Deep mutational scan, measured.
Amino acid sequence: MDTYKLILNGKTLKGETTTEAVDAATAEKVFKHYANEHGVHGHWTYDPETKTFTSTE
């Protein structure tokens, strides 16, 4: 398992979190669920070199 990072740049919520996942697709599902639960619906990007997802509203 690898550690993946999420950076949230929402209108009402900003911050970072991490998750352990078997691959990027699994981490993306976890992070999108997390963002949706916190009302963040933004544009998603992923940097495979740093294993970092960013959601920007």
Rank of each mutant, 00 (worst) to 15 (best):
M1K: 13
M1R: 10
M1L: 14
M1E: 08
D2S: 14
D2I: 13
D2L: 11
D2E: 14
T3L: 12
T3F: 07
T3A: 05
T3M: 09
Y4L: 03
Y4A: 02
Y4C: 05
Y4I: 04
Y4Q: 03
Y4M: 03
Y4H: 04
Y4R: 03
Y4K: 03
Y4V: 03
K5L: 07
K5E: 04
K5D: 04
K5M: 06
K5F: 14
K5P: 04
L6P: 04
L6E: 04
L6G: 03
L6W: 04
I7G: 01
I7E: 04
I7K: 05
L8A: 02
L8Y: 10
L8K: 00
L8W: 09
N9I: 15
N9H: 10
N9Y: 12
N9E: 09
N9W: 12
N9P: 02
N9K: 10
N9S: 08
G10H: 13
G10F: 14
G10Q: 04
G10I: 05
G10S: 08
K11M: 13
K11N: 11
K11G: 09
T12D: 11
T12Q: 10
T12S: 11
L13F: 15
L13P: 03
L13T: 11
L13W: 15
K14S: 11
K14T: 11
G15I: 15
E16F: 14
E16D: 05
E16W: 14
T17I: 15
T17Q: 08
T17M: 15
T17W: 15
T17Y: 15
T17E: 05
T17L: 15
T18H: 09
T18G: 02
T18L: 08
T18N: 05
T18W: 14
T18E: 08
T19V: 14
T19M: 12
T19P: 00
T19D: 01
T19Q: 04
E20I: 14
E20Q: 14
E20R: 13
A21Y: 01
A21L: 01
A21T: 04
V22S: 12
V22Y: 12
V22L: 12
V22K: 13
D23L: 02
D23H: 03
D23I: 02
D23N: 09
D23V: 02
D23K: 02
D23W: 01
D23T: 04
D23P: 01
D23E: 03
D23G: 03
A24C: 14
A24M: 11
A24G: 03
A24L: 08
A24F: 14
A24D: 04
A24W: 13
A24R: 10
A24T: 05
A24P: 10
A25K: 11
A25Q: 11
A25I: 11
A25G: 08
A25M: 11
A27N: 00
A27D: 01
A27F: 01
A27C: 01
A27K: 02
A27M: 02
E28P: 00
E28V: 04
E28R: 06
E28I: 07
K29Y: 08
K29R: 12
K29H: 11
K29V: 11
K29L: 11
K29W: 07
V30G: 03
V30N: 06
F31M: 03
F31R: 01
F31N: 00
F31A: 01
F31I: 00
F31P: 00
F31G: 00
K32E: 05
K32S: 05
H33T: 13
H33W: 11
H33D: 14
H33S: 13
H33K: 15
H33R: 14
Y34N: 01
Y34G: 01
Y34C: 06
Y34V: 05
A35W: 02
A35T: 06
A35C: 02
A35F: 04
N36R: 13
N36C: 13
N36Q: 14
N36H: 14
N36D: 12
E37A: 13
E37Y: 09
E37D: 09
E37T: 13
E37G: 06
H38A: 12
H38I: 13
H38F: 12
H38K: 13
H38R: 13
H38V: 14
H38C: 11
G39N: 09
G39L: 05
G39Y: 04
G39Q: 06
G39W: 06
V40F: 15
V40Q: 04
V40M: 08
V40A: 05
V40P: 02
V40D: 04
H41G: 09
H41F: 15
H41Q: 12
H41V: 13
H41M: 12
H41I: 13
H41L: 11
H41T: 12
G42I: 08
G42T: 04
G42Q: 03
G42F: 06
G42N: 03
H43A: 13
H43L: 14
H43R: 12
H43N: 13
H43V: 15
W44E: 00
W44I: 07
W44L: 09
W44G: 00
T45Q: 09
Y46T: 00
Y46D: 00
Y46V: 00
Y46P: 00
D47K: 04
D47T: 06
D47W: 04
D47Y: 06
P48H: 08
P48F: 07
P48S: 10
P48W: 06
P48I: 07
E49T: 11
E49L: 12
E49V: 10
T50Y: 06
T50R: 06
T50L: 06
T50A: 06
T50C: 04
T50G: 04
K51D: 01
K51R: 12
K51Y: 06
K51N: 05
T52I: 07
T52Q: 03
T52E: 04
T52L: 04
F53W: 04
F53G: 00
F53A: 00
T54Q: 06
T54Y: 13
T54R: 07
T54I: 08
T54C: 08
T54H: 07
T54G: 02
T54D: 03
T54V: 07
T54K: 05
S55Q: 08
S55T: 15
S55Y: 10
S55I: 15
S55A: 15
T56A: 07
T56E: 10
T56H: 07
T56L: 06
T56S: 09
E57D: 07
E57P: 05
E57A: 05
